[in-house]
Design a protein around this nucleic acid. Sequence first.
DNA 1: AAAAATTATATGACTTGTCACGTATTATTT
DNA 2: AAATAATACGTGACAAGTCATATAATTTTT
Lengths: 169, 169
Amino acid sequence: MADKGKLSPEAIRERRAHEELNVFSRLPAVYAASRKQGQQFLQRGGGISIVEWRTLWDLCEAGPMTIRDLAAIQRADHSLLSRALPDMRDKGFVTMTRDEADKRQTVVEVTSKGRAAYEVAAPVMARRRAALRESMTEDEIRAFITLLTKLEDFLHTPADQLLERETHQ
Amino acid sequence: MADKGKLSPEAIRERRAHEELNVFSRLPAVYAASRKQGQQFLQRGGGISIVEWRTLWDLCEAGPMTIRDLAAIQRADHSLLSRALPDMRDKGFVTMTRDEADKRQTVVEVTSKGRAAYEVAAPVMARRRAALRESMTEDEIRAFITLLTKLEDFLHTPADQLLERETHQ
DNA sequence: AAAAATTATATGACTTGTCACGTATTATTT
DNA sequence: AAATAATACGTGACAAGTCATATAATTTTT
């Protein structure tokens, strides 16, 4: 333990090295770096936001869908889409239509303007994915996805279940 | 392409499966799940926030340090710490003292109250890390960290550099 | 037919991240 | 000694995530 009131560069360096190996400590920065780089790419591909990009991509690839569908594909809370879509409609990128058969649902569809915005961003973002494949092999990416899925499953385990497990051991 | 205005469950399913293999698409949800689970654990370990937990852990393990030090260990922007620390001081968890030798710097130190809060949360969070090791082997975690570091390096590459590289190919 | 339960979306509020900028201080250069 | 550059931190503003709640609509149960 460092002396009271005294900085210890050695202890700080050790702490840093220790946290390098802590998955939970590493995720926030990796996610933030991904977001930042994604935003940089999109700035050069029409200036749309990451949520706008994801949504236009989903709609152009898979056709009209509900807010729930978008949330499921994007693995996000529906409120994120609920909030983003009216602005996208105001920008002329999408239409939002109440489903006649089930008035609880809103069907979101891309417009020609939205498709145009997608076409500007798509090659830039494709370049990003290609660049990742130049940096990491297909096997590495596949291994990473496998481990990421395993981690995600673990992270979806409620804290109580994990804490209770120890109690019973 | 789906018929205009028509939902296509098949296309949506395919889209979902496709994005399962996209690293950039997967990260936000994994990070959000990690944060959520971390908050759940902390709720059962004294009720402190994730940033508070990280900071108390850093200070208890490595002793007093500057805001820059904390930011470096946590791989976060200094403003995140700059914002969190006054509240932690107000809660009595830390002291913030201007460095006599360099008045630009603030030295942050844990108090006995902060250490007590750390002692409540620490075993709960240790349990979380142990639970991860029950879920993933040491080799898997090590492999994941290695790939995460590789990905992080890639993500720190500016977009211009990656876009320019293609231009010159 | 009516009541209860479930589902879909919108919105309030919050957390956690960042970038940009300003101020104060120290270090370096002239 | 003075000017310039660099560094540390505080703050404004914003993006992207979530949880909780309310309202409306549909489905299920009684």
